[in-house]
Amino acid sequence: MWALGTWVLLGAVCAGSAQLQFNVTKSVEQTACNKTVILPCIVTNLIKNNIQVIFVKWKLEKKAFFIFEGSTGKINRNESFSSAALESPQNLTSGIASLTISKTQAVRGNYSCEVTESSREGETVIELIYHRVPWFTPVENILIILSMVLAILFYWIQLAVTVSKFETTLLKIGLFIAGVVITISAVVGFSLLISDDFKPENQIGLGLIVLPAVILVPCQYFLLQIVYENNLLFAIGVVILESLGYLIAVIGFGLCITACRPKNGAVVIAGLAIMALIALVGLIYAILSGYSKKEQPPRKAVEEPLNAKVTGESDRICYRGGDM
Rank of each mutant, 00 (worst) to 15 (best):
K74E: 13
G237V: 05
V37W: 05
L192S: 11
T31H: 04
Y155W: 08
I101D: 03
V8S: 15
A276Q: 01
R120E: 02
A12E: 12
T36W: 14
N45E: 06
P262D: 07
L175F: 06
S292C: 07
I38F: 06
L241K: 02
N45V: 08
F81H: 11
C33L: 15
K263F: 10
F68K: 02
K63V: 08
V133E: 12
K263T: 14
C41Q: 01
L146W: 01
L306I: 10
I145F: 05
L159Y: 07
L39Q: 00
V302T: 10
S243F: 02
I194L: 07
V239C: 01
G73F: 08
Y111Q: 03
N307V: 08
Q203G: 10
I38C: 13
E121Y: 10
T25G: 03
E201I: 13
E87S: 15
G322D: 15
A106S: 06
L9D: 11
L4W: 10
V238D: 00
S185Y: 07
T25K: 05
V125A: 05
V238G: 03
T183I: 05
S94V: 14
I209D: 00
A85F: 09
E121F: 06
L9I: 13
G179E: 03
E140F: 02
R320I: 15
V125Q: 08
V43Y: 01
L10T: 12
I54A: 03
K63Y: 09
L128G: 04
E69D: 09
A3F: 02
T36C: 11
L170Y: 03
K165F: 14
V188W: 06
N264I: 11
L206N: 01
I42L: 12
Q225L: 15
G290D: 03
S314L: 13
V187L: 10
I54G: 00
A12G: 10
E229W: 12
F253N: 00
Q30W: 03
I144K: 02
F154M: 01
A286M: 00
E114Y: 08
Q105G: 04
L306F: 09
L224Q: 03
D197Y: 13
N78M: 04
S71K: 15
A178N: 09
S195V: 07
A178D: 03
A186Y: 04
T258E: 06
I177V: 15
E127A: 12
K165Y: 11
L175S: 04
N76P: 00
I96P: 07
Q90S: 14
V188N: 00
I177L: 13
V163T: 10
I182H: 01
E114S: 12
C14P: 07
A266Q: 06
I215T: 05
G207S: 06
P138R: 12
M324F: 12
G252N: 01
N23T: 14
F166T: 09
V107E: 07
M1D: 11
V281T: 04
P40A: 01
W7V: 15
I240C: 06
L175I: 09
E303L: 10
V8P: 02
T36A: 13
Q52L: 08
G174H: 06
A213I: 09
T137R: 08
A64Y: 06
V161P: 07
L159E: 02
F136S: 01
P212V: 11
T169N: 02
L241F: 07
L170H: 07
F190P: 00
